[in-house]
Design a binder for these strands. Structure first.
Lengths: 124, 124
DNA sequence: ACTAGTGTTATATCTTTCTATAACACTATA
DNA sequence: TATAGTGTTATAGAAAGATATAACACTAGT
């Protein structure tokens, strides 16, 4: 995984794990990789992984079991809500950015349509 | 202007000014507000403003004139390119985020369409 | 010349993030 | 009960970002 040096790593790890959960790579109740393993995989320090997990635990998406591991919540509704929140957050950010450039609603839609079309041709 | 505490302020200022240029609030050749004034308006330190400007100058979008002020480049083509880059960057980020959630191209389009529709109803 | 307005640079200090390293706490199983 | 696997916490140091404050450099107009 590559990190954007403009955003705290712990924050990107959090988003990365949320993505994997919403995408279904990590199912309800699944055990996460061990913190030390995650640290190795992501080439970061254990404390940095822990910082991300601490927040996810506080938000109720991860349930820690000391000595056993960290587990994805078994609360399906919570994950559904998370997905909707992510979709809304990303859509809102995209809309606001283009709106700030004075693009109309129609032009905003066209922008993403055009991007998707071009993408199909030259796979970037 | 509100800052996102997850991203360096100087970087957000840079994007903010690029937005104002692309949106046409700042025209080709226009003089920018004085650095001290910008610092007051954005409630940040002069050095922070200067850090943003330094990079914009290095990228050729701002032309500094010591003792007179900072000016938007008069190179129209450069601004056009900037607009396209911004559109592409934002579209790409949006696409990748939703693609990582395993949404299809069609679903990605629907997501932004739905957002825009809902937005019209309850103005958020 | 002086002055007001402007850009530019420097210093010291604070905060946040990240790191390396180590130790401690708990669970499951041989 | 020993041990391997796991989570948790702590300390000290490095690096980046932001701040307050101050000084220096240039321009334009009086």
């Amino acid at each position: 995984m590559l990190f954007d040096d403009k955003v705290p790593i712990y924050y990107q790890i959090k988003n990365y794990l949320y993505h994997r959960i919403v995408a279904g790579d990590l199912q309800l109740g699944d055990k996460l990789p061990a913190v030390r393993q995650l640290a190795v995989d992501l080439t970061v320090n254990v404390n940095t992984v822990q910082r991300a997990l601490r927040e996810m635990i506080a938000e109720g998406y991860i349930v820690p079991q000391r000595g056993r591991g960290n587990f994805v919540t078994a609360d399906a509704a919570k994950i559904t809500t998370l997905k909707h929140e992510l979709l809304r957050t990303y859509s809102q950010a995209f809309y606001r950015q283009l709106h700030a450039l004075k693009l109309s609603d129609t032009e905003i839609l066209q922008a993403i349509e055009t991007y998707i079309e071009k993408r199909r041709d030259a796979d970037d």
